[in-house]
Design a protein around this nucleic acid. Structure first.
Lengths: 215, 215
DNA sequence: GGACTAACCTAGTCTCCGTTAGGTTTACCG
DNA sequence: CGGTAAACCTAACGGAGACTAGGTTAGTCC
């Protein structure tokens, strides 16, 4: 009853690129907040200022959208390490610097990293994409941080499995602390960095110098 | 066309208790494999040898079923620590013993622990249940392992936040290694224990003795 | 200022899945 | 044996949400 077509919402018409960026931002939020399954195209569209079909003008499916975001944000995180870890300073300082930059990213991109870490979706395709991108990051970053940090020794001699396990410890600690920090945002960043360094560097250094735990 | 009612599948009729146990086992598997959302009542029922409505004779909803399993399996894991950690031996040995028992559980219950660790479902109720039960475990176990292991020092002096962070490192490392181990089952358990001990004990001990990382 | 492209919309379809209503059969107990 | 409780079934509902068909309007370019 009343006005037939459109109550005149005066939609702003954007370029495809600009709208696409809005959709990606909104989708990152929604995926981070609700996880893959509960993230609805409807909500993503609403937060982008459009209706659902518009999303499909830019992405062929929900999975496709998700996958693109995964790759985008993993690349950003990888970039952090590539930019802040290499250098001439002693490894201890470079590691601390990289970890600080990493926590800074976590602080400034409250959605991007949560979308990557908070979920292991049951959707086979999504899980596969997740894994693939994780393996790629590991392959790219492992040679960067191993060797110099002594992380190759934590899990036995430097065989492939040992390296992967050391990487896993690294990853788990940083990811775990980041998730905890999100729930405890009053903690200053430098304390997070100290904690990570105490767990990862001080301990590893001792192991690195040859000490092992023996049954 | 043909036989009207039932091609005679000869269903075995069980007691409510026995059927309930079958359903819980099957549900644990399915939740572990697919995560909460993709776990369908249909599949759970099929693996329990019944049809979907029977599940509702035992559990009021999918959420209810999931919640019961969460509590059951968290209790089992907590029991491990309560049984294997306390004692008269030096803390180093007791910690190693408990970690070994923990990995043994992981090895022998390939579904239960994955159901707990592999997921952070978007479903608000489920997430809330997850969190509640995690907080309860932490409250129960933290006083058990803190203090003796020196874990209170990794994250600064023994304030509440520091304790929680140390706990988080513990949890993250054990959980991360368990998930990695699941994908690399050829690694013997004692090597997993050594790795965990090298990461958690050797390093912590040094921090415990007063050493800290300083910017 | 007319025409054309493409950004955007309305209105639906279709499938999956949790859940329920209500009947049927098995086991057990007297 | 019968009667009864409860274990189990068939059949269907209802809602949610991914995705699509096809039209409408806003910018843009001669």
């Amino acid at each position: 009853m009343g006005t037939k077509k459109r109550a005149g919402p005066r939609r702003r018409r954007l370029t495809a690129e600009a709208r696409r960026e809005l959709i990606e931002r909104a989708a990152t939020e929604v995926f981070a907040e609700h996880g893959y399954h509960r993230a609805s195209i409807d909500e993503i569209a609403r937060r982008s200022g459009v209706t659902p079909p518009v999303v499909y003008d830019h992405f062929s499916s929900k999975k496709d959208l998700h996958k693109r975001l995964l790759e985008r944000h993993y690349a950003e995180l990888g970039e952090i390490w590539r930019r802040y870890f290499p250098g001439e300073d002693p490894p201890e300082q470079r590691l601390a610097g990289a970890i600080d930059a990493w926590f800074a990213y976590v602080q400034n991109h409250p959605y991007a990293w949560r979308m990557l870490f908070r979920e292991t979706s049951g959707e086979p395709d999504v899980q596969a994409a997740h894994r693939e991108v994780q393996v790629r990051s590991r392959a790219a970053l492992l040679p960067l941080v191993a060797g110099e940090t002594g992380s190759e020794n934590i899990a036995g001699s430097g065989d492939a499995a040992g390296l992967e396990m050391a990487w896993e410890v690294f990853r788990a600690v940083l990811q775990g602390l980041a998730l905890w920090w999100y729930e405890n945002q009053h903690i200053p960043r430098d304390r997070m960095v100290s904690t990570a360094m105490n767990a990862l560097w001080v301990g590893f250094e001792r192991v690195r110098s040859g000490e092992r735990w023996e049954a």
